[in-house]
Design a protein around this nucleic acid. Structure first.
Lengths: 362, 362
DNA sequence: CTTTCAACACGAACCGTTTCACATTTCCGC
DNA sequence: GCGGAAATGTGAAACGGTTCGTGTTGAAAG
């Protein structure tokens, strides 16, 4: 008992007060200003009920100590991290970069931090990050799937109203999401190609379990049917939205004898279309003289290749902005500076450039 | 006194135990497992000194409750956020996206989260984020400046050994940084252009207060001098590394009478070179027939434009990886899984494509 | 049959805030 | 001169973990 009293009772150790490198806490400020900790807190926050004179003393203590509140502690108390997460396959895809850019723009305006997670489209990472972000009590999550699946961890986020999907819509489930009108856009670009008189076309589609890939495919099929072509008769090769897969798919689709091979390749995104263009160039096919090509996304690159790539504009940045706004509105229901309803279906626009032309007279 | 006892003493309220939506805490786990909170903690962490049987009980309680530790609390206790920040001008610039990608790759491997902050090259945002990230006790910061300046807040981070600069080196100050050998790369590409026999060249430089811009300019001047051209005699227009500024700069540089205007434009980055290329194309100049063009960065785009852009490869991703490794080594000094010294000066490589040719016989 | 000592479990302090519920002072009207 | 509201300041309990120092065992050692 005596021992206890003499050794174990830990008085505030004056030594660590001067520990250099130690950053001042609200307690230091209180001590210097000669007020209670809670008073300092009130000064820092909704300056309610504190006299001008006290406020002054506290503020000068804050300045003297160069105190900055520890957000970690604040967040623990509040139970929210003040940041949102963005899970996306890969930043180097300009489309994802654009979405990220839009998300960040809105987050920035609302004093939210953005945690960026890339998954290389691997379910493993999608799962990992959705768990980590849950554990970190992030306020919300914007998810661009590379796999087309929702992990259980993600499903729980849906329950708590803090998940927004971009360019993905789950059958049956009512998950908040922001999408482009993929089907309509695909229909439009395919209509355009077919209206040039192509009869033998090939399709380079996206990964089959991706919602966008399905939608675009549906649009293409609509257009084909409307042009009197049996959709089931056209050759389709699935890629993965990467440039290399477009190259590889083109090689497959163009492997037949010249008389039978497609005079136009409809590609489910620009990167793959460019891959295909590279292959065509390599085997000496002129675009659009020998073969027409179109893409989807309208990434900046599309206007810079030669010939310019006919594509479908879906502004990634706008999508990102809407997604972030939607997410924030879910988190803090009815914000006062409300800017009206948030678009969840973004229109797409056909962008005609030089890569599509009429087929050579057969 | 009596009043106090009967009303103010707040017993643990059983009501909020069942509050649905409330996530289980370590205390709930302890209660269910019938052990002390500290024991649960030990199980979760360095499982030291816990009997197999207890560990089992705790683990099954964890599973039953679907408990996940609150990282916010953990971090407060630890005083570190377990994440690093990346401050960069703009994600849509593929070079920055590549750096970010490299950083994220390493961070991911070390279980660190990446907070992404974009500044649009505005000092205002650079300052804002450096403060916010300090307040959040982020473990470290990787900074790509758009303005060439370090805010005071950033300087304090230098003191605490948790700031790494990318592609920036401050005169006098010894701030850890990772750079490409900009000067050498610039020298190489300019040598290449001049070796084709160009005598009248123009330069589109970067913003003058950026370190990279200065270095590249120095390299160009070396090459000019070596080729017997007075560096001060060549026209220079400063851009801002954006495509539009390249376009504008080209218009200025090519405004003279045909006999006097440059036969080659040396551009301080690819985006501006592409802008210049667009302008040339617009006024009917053939690249490289009428005018040669070169860039810097070797972004993916450079190989896709027609003709391919001769450029200098500086792998943004590698730079990002090194920067992140360097930062992590500053934070937790000598990691055991050390992979040797970290490169801070990354070599550049001349990439020759079709955009540079000999000038037409004068 | 003590003593010693691991091994294991526990309680409580602490990280740096916020915020609730009071305590104290001031001031006013009666 | 008194009661009471308003204004201002305070202490202490959270938030959800980690970790130090200590208490309690049971078995091996003496």
């Amino acid at each position: 008992m005596k021992r206890r009293l003499s050794t174990a009772v830990s008085l505030p150790d004056p030594a660590n007060r001067d520990d250099p490198g130690r950053r001042p806490t609200i307690r230091d400020v209180a001590r210097v200003a000669g007020v209670a900790v809670s008073t300092v807190s009130y000064v820092i926050n909704r300056s309610g009920q504190v006299s001008a004179e006290t406020r002054l003393r506290v503020n000068s203590a804050i300045n003297a100590l160069r105190y900055e509140p520890n957000l970690l502690a604040r967040n623990l108390k509040a139970g929210r991290a003040g940041s949102i997460g963005l899970i996306a396959p890969d930043l180097r895809n300009p489309y994802f970069a654009a979405v990220a850019s839009g998300v960040q723009e809105i987050a920035q305006a609302r004093d939210m931090l953005l945690v960026l997670c890339t998954t290389q489209s691997a379910q493993h990472w999608e799962n990992y990050y959705s768990q980590v972000l849950r554990a970190r009590r992030l306020d919300g999550l914007i998810f661009l799937s590379g796999s087309g699946m929702l992990t259980p961890s993600l499903m729980e986020l849906v329950q708590s109203n803090s998940l927004v999907l971009v360019d993905e819509r789950l059958p049956g489930l009512d998950v908040p999401s922001v999408v482009s009108t993929n089907r309509r856009g695909a229909r439009a670009v395919a209509d355009h190609v077919l209206s040039q008189g192509h009869h033998r076309v090939g399709i380079i589609s996206g990964a089959p379990n991706l919602w966008t890939a399905g939608q675009r495919m549906a649009g293409y099929r609509e257009a084909l049917a409307a042009a009197g072509i049996d959709p089931d008769s056209v050759p389709v090769v699935a890629g993965d939205y990467q440039q290399e897969s477009g190259y590889a798919a083109a090689r497959i689709l163009l492997s037949g004898p010249p008389a039978e091979r497609p005079t136009a390749l409809i590609c489910a995104n620009d990167l793959m279309a460019i891959g295909a263009m590279l292959y065509c160039r390599e085997i000496g096919l002129d675009v659009p003289g020998d073969i027409s090509l179109c893409g989807f996304d309208d990434i900046p690159l599309a206007s810079l290749v030669q010939p310019g790539l006919t594509s479908v504009d879906q502004c990634g940045e706008t999508l990102g902005r809407s997604a972030c706004r939607l997410l924030l509105s879910l988190i803090a229901p009815p914000s006062p500076d409300d800017q009206g309803p948030i678009e969840t279906d973004h229109p797409t626009k056909l962008v005609i450039r030089g890569s599509v032309a009429a087929p050579k007279a057969a």
